[in-house]
C-alpha cells in the first residue's frame, strides 16, 4: 500500500480527520463561551471540531490567561495531551460549536489500526506544530501591526480579492492578548490599517482587498 503525499496537506488532513474521526464519537452542541476543559484537568475526552471555533489559552505564573490559538473545523483538541494524561491548556468555545467527543482509548486504538490513520494523527499534530512555529516566528519578527494583519488574513483563508466583511471572533481585549500587545496598541494598529483598506465598526471588520493587505503584511515583515 502506498501513502499519497497529497493527503498530507493541511486541508486534506483536517478533511480526513472529519471523515474518519466523526463516526467514532458522539456529537453534541456547545454554546458560545463554554469551557470544554481547563489546564491541568485529567484528559478524559478529546474534541473534534465539526463546526465553530474554539480558543485555547494558557495560564502563566502571573497575570491573566494568554490566548494561544483558535482551532476551527477539523481540528482535534487534546491530541497533544495524550502522553501527559492532563490538559496543557484551557479550551473555550468562541461561537456555538458542533463537536465530537472522543476518548483517549479510541484514539490509541485508531493509531494502531492502520498506517494511514496513524499518519493522519501524526499529521494532525504536525499541523498544530506548524501553526505554533509560524506563530512564534510572527511574534518575533512582525510588529504589532503586522501580527494584526496576519490575524485578519487568517480569518479569510483563500480569499484573494474583493471586499470582505467579517465579525471579529473575540473581544478586542482578548484579541490584544492573542497578539501579545496592550489594548491601546491594538487600537493604534487598527487605526493605522485604514490606509491599507481596513475599516472597523464595532466587532465588524471590512477588508477592501485581501491581496493588498497580504502585500502590506509581507512588506511589514521585510522591514521588521
Amino acid at each position: 500500500m502506498g501513502i499519497n503525499l497529497d493527503l498530507l496537506s493541511e486541508q486534506a488532513i483536517l478533511g480526513a480527520a472529519l471523515t474518519r474521526l466523526s463516526p467514532l464519537g458522539t456529537a453534541f452542541l456547545a454554546d458560545e463561551g463554554s469551557v470544554l476543559y481547563r489546564e491541568g484537568d485529567a484528559l478524559d475526552t478529546l474534541y473534534l471540531v465539526q463546526d465553530g471555533s474554539v480558543m485555547t489559552e494558557v495560564m502563566l505564573s502571573s497575570g491573566p490567561a494568554v490566548p494561544v490559538d483558535i482551532t476551527g473545523r477539523g481540528g482535534v483538541l487534546g491530541l497533544s495531551d495524550l502522553g501527559e494524561g492532563t490538559h496543557g491548556e484551557t479550551a473555550r468555545t468562541l461561537s456555538p460549536c458542533r463537536l465530537i467527543r472522543l476518548t483517549p482509548g479510541q484514539v490509541h486504538d485508531l493509531a494502531g489500526s492502520s498506517a494511514e490513520t496513524a499518519l493522519l494523527l501524526v499529521g494532525l499534530l504536525s499541523v498544530g506544530l506548524r501553526h505554533r512555529i509560524r506563530a512564534i516566528a510572527d511574534q518575533r519578527s512582525l510588529s504589532a501591526r503586522g501580527r494584526l494583519m496576519a490575524f485578519l488574513l487568517s480569518l479569510m483563508p483563500g480569499r484573494r480579492s474583493g471586499s470582505v466583511t467579517m465579525r471579529l471572533p473575540v473581544s478586542k481585549t482578548t484579541l490584544a492578548a492573542h497578539l501579545g500587545i496592550t489594548p491601546q496598541s491594538l487600537s493604534r494598529s487598527l487605526r493605522s490599517l485604514r490606509d491599507d483598506g481596513v475599516t472597523v465598526r464595532g466587532a465588524l471588520v471590512t477588508v477592501a482587498d485581501p491581496a493588498d493587505l497580504r502585500h502590506a503584511m509581507e512588506a511589514e515583515r521585510d522591514v521588521a
Partner: peptide, 23 residues
C-alpha cells in the same frame, strides 16, 4: 504511538513558549 506522544509534548512546550512570548 511514541512518535505521536513526543510530538504532543513538543506541541505543549511550544504552546507555553508562545504564551510566554505573548504574555
Amino acid at each position: 504511538m511514541p512518535l505521536l506522544t513526543s510530538l504532543g509534548r513538543r506541541h505543549r512546550t511550544m504552546t507555553r513558549s508562545l504564551a510566554e512570548l505573548k504574555g
